[in-house]
Each structure stands twice: as structure tokens, then as C-alpha cells.
């Protein structure tokens, strides 16, 4: 049997009213102490606190370093034709490259 709309509304209203009769809770001093204990445990100790490096400075440094690297690369390649081999020998330990540089 399909439930009557009016009866459904009546139950719904009773449930809504039930909420009004609910007791409001207050914070106990025991709960406050428990929370403070956890917060003290989570807090960084004063001697552990170090000044963090600002993120903005890190990014500025990274951008500047990249730009300088690119400029040095262009300068080196532009002024010395054998720079690519020297760079390869410097960064790699490929014996063939190192050997071929010795022959030059």
C-alpha cells in the first residue's frame, strides 16, 4: 500500500521537531585539556624552529642560475669550436671521447 502523502509530511515534521528537543553540548574542561595536550605535542619546539628560506628567493635563484647557464653555454659555443668536445669530456667519462680529444 502506498503511504499517504499527508502522513509522510506529518512524520517528517515530527522528525524536524525532534531536533529542537536535542540537548546542546558544552565543552568540558577535560576535553579542553586533552586537545591542548595533543596541540602541545604537535607544536614545533622552539629550538627546532629555523627560519625557512622564502620560496620566492628559491625561485629567483633558480631562474637566475638557469639564465647564467644558458648565457655561458652560448658564449662558450660561440667563441670556441671545440667546446662541445671539451664539455663532453668534462661531464662524461667516455673513454672514446677523452681519447679523441687527446689526439686533437
Amino acid at each position: 500500500m502506498k503511504a499517504d502523502e499527508e502522513e509522510i509530511s506529518r512524520i517528517e515534521n515530527a522528525l524536524l521537531s525532534a531536533r529542537r528537543h536535542r540537548e546542546t553540548e558544552r565543552m568540558s574542561s577535560r576535553l579542553r585539556s586533552d586537545i591542548m595536550r595533543d596541540i602541545r605535542a604537535a607544536a614545533p619546539r622552539r629550538d627546532d624552529v629555523r627560519e625557512p628560506v622564502p620560496l620566492r628567493l628559491v625561485w629567483r635563484f633558480a631562474a637566475t642560475a638557469s639564465l647564467v647557464a644558458v648565457l655561458v653555454l652560448f658564449y662558450t659555443f660561440g667563441s670556441n669550436s671545440g667546446a662541445e668536445y671539451e664539455a663532453a669530456a668534462f661531464f662524461g667519462d667516455d673513454i672514446l671521447i677523452a681519447g679523441s680529444l687527446d689526439l686533437l
Binding site: 506529518r10 512524520i11 515530527a14 522528525l15 521537531s17 531536533r19 528537543h21
Partner: peptide
């Protein structure tokens, strides 16, 4: 409780039924 609310006729009885612990449990 559900039966009581279905057959309730006055606002006073309705409020009393809504205040019962069964109301909170059905909610």
C-alpha cells in the same frame, strides 16, 4: 511512535511525541 504520530490530532500531543527519545532515534 510512528503510529502515534500518524494518528495525532492536536498540536500539543504532536509536540510531546516529537520530544520523545524515539523521535530522535527514528530521525
Amino acid at each position: 511512535w510512528v503510529d502515534a504520530v500518524r494518528s495525532v490530532e492536536s498540536q500539543e500531543v504532536f509536540e510531546r511525541e516529537a520530544g520523545r527519545k524515539e523521535a530522535g532515534e527514528v530521525l
